[in-house]
Amino acid sequence: MNPSRDEVFEKIRDVLTDALGVDDEEVVAEATLQGDLGAESIDFLDMVFRLEKEFSIEIPKGELFADEVWNNPDYVENDMVTPAGLEKFKEAMPHADFSSFEQEPHVSKIPDLSTVNTIVNYVESKLALA
């Protein structure tokens, strides 16, 4: 039986406190990985490795944080993500909450899509498929 969402969250909290050196209480569902928890580029890889080990899942390159889509300049015009780009992003990151981002899809807001909740949603979907 798959673990409950709370159990998944607890494990992810442990992963993030270890990977990012943050305190338990900082790891809340809405916390953004970069802005709130201070994650840097190599930390994303560190998180991926730790999540794979913790949940015995495989995380293909670019699947959790969709970095390859984000880095595609074709989807950006005047620092705003184009409607076509937005659709691609949503497709690539079904585990992220786009409701606030799509109101003003400025490139500077892209990192805010990667929150603790994004990881919880992703891991839950992976475990459901397992």
Binding site: D46, F49, E52, K53, K61
Partner: peptide
């Protein structure tokens, strides 16, 4: 070696 792929190693 804990993990090893084309991106990185732990």
């Amino acid at each position: 070696v804990e993990s090893l792929d084309e991106r990185a190693a732990v």
